[in-house]
């Protein structure tokens, strides 16, 4: 079993197995033979014309899978949705990535795809918020916007004709992410939804579920337009205190209250538990696990123990069975 290399005692193991069995029995009714492995035949009705999609190939007139995954059928199209694979970008996806290189007029980002993504200087809003041509000076100041190893959030713009993936960040909600944690989970367990930015207002935390399996949990930042005068004020400040002494303003900016940090860690651990168990990651589930851990009065580090994993699995089994009953 993937990821469940937890130290469990006998009773916990049994309970985990029972919970997982319950989950299996719940899902097996829906689609029993949809899973295929490499080189399995996919049964299709050959009288109808079919379209072979991703993850399929033709062999002696039969449709054969080239991936391990689940067969999906949409009208005539038959394709295999791979489970554990790298992220496959779709236009409009919201992703979180890490800058690995600052190149001329562009940043290169690691986004868990088979290639690095490119964020052009021209496809993002400048910090002063003015729409204008990017000058050579802007190009020289690129490092003041994003540096290497910065974590940023952007949207997939599309593939260029040369095959490289372009991103855009044309809104205030995109951009550099600071004071928080980046988590990497397999992309298939992140559910695609209308909303990927979440503001958990009772904790003052921003949660970004990137479609590429990079999840950001960080302190809430007010989306504000950095006004021009703000910039001037800032640069004046910087000029004033030359050297390495931090101004009170900067200290205030980097300071995060202890309980916010604890909330960040708690949410991050909830996501870690979900990803080791291989459950779908949604805000509702994360909040449920968060509340579970709080109601049990568990410390943050205890959430990663075997007992809590078992509890989460049992809770999930219960939740899914109640869902199916309602239907």
């Amino acid at each position: 079993m993937r990821g469940v290399q937890l130290s469990l005692n006998k009773g916990q193991k049994l309970r985990l197995e029972r919970a997982l069995d319950k989950l299996e029995s719940l899902s097996s009714k829906a689609n029993s033979d949809a899973s295929v492995t490499v080189a399995d035949d996919i049964s299709v009705n050959y009288e109808d014309a079919i379209l072979k999609g991703h993850g399929t190939t033709e062999l002696d007139g039969r449709v054969v899978a080239t991936l391990c995954g689940v067969v999906e059928r949409v009208n005539k199209l038959v394709y295999v949705r791979a489970l554990r694979a790298r992220y496959k970008p779709e236009i409009g996806d919201i992703i979180v990535g890490r800058v690995i290189e600052v190149a001329p007029k562009r940043w290169r980002l690691e986004i868990n795809f088979s290639q690095d993504a490119v964020l052009m200087l021209s496809s993002m809003n400048l910090p002063d918020g003015i729409q204008r041509r990017r000058t050579a000076i802007d190009e020289l100041n690129m490092r003041s916007i994003f540096e290497e190893n910065d974590v940023i959030c952007a949207e997939v713009r599309g593939f260029q004709h040369d095959g490289c993936l372009h991103l855009q960040a044309r809104s205030q909600k995109y951009g550099k992410l600071k004071t928080g944690q980046l988590l990497t989970v397999p992309p298939y367990i992140v559910k695609k939804r209308k909303q990927h930015f979440h503001y958990l207002d009772q904790y003052g935390i921003d949660l970004i579920l990137g479609c590429n399996g990079f999840i950001w949990v960080g302190e809430h930042v007010e989306v504000r337009d950095d006004m021009v005068e703000d910039q001037i004020y800032k640069s004046d400040q910087e000029n004033l205190n030359s050297g390495n002494t931090l101004s009170s303003n900067e200290i205030e900016e980097t300071y995060t209250p202890l309980d916010t940090r604890q909330h960040i860690c708690r949410i991050a651990n909830a996501i870690r538990v979900l990803s080791t168990l291989g459950f779908m990651i949604t805000v509702e589930l994360i909040m449920e696990i968060l509340n579970l851990s709080k109601s049990l009065n568990l410390d943050i580090h205890e959430m990663l123990g075997g007992e809590f994993h078992v509890l989460v699995a049992e809770k999930e089994a219960e939740r899914r069975s109640s869902l199916t009953k309602k239907r």
């Binding site: 299996e24 899902s27 097996s28 554990r84 298939y188 168990l277 459950f279 899914r320």
Partner: peptide, 8 residues
């Protein structure tokens, strides 16, 4: 395993 654990 992966599929049923993920759920719908």
């Amino acid at each position: 395993q992966l599929e049923f654990r993920r759920g719908l």
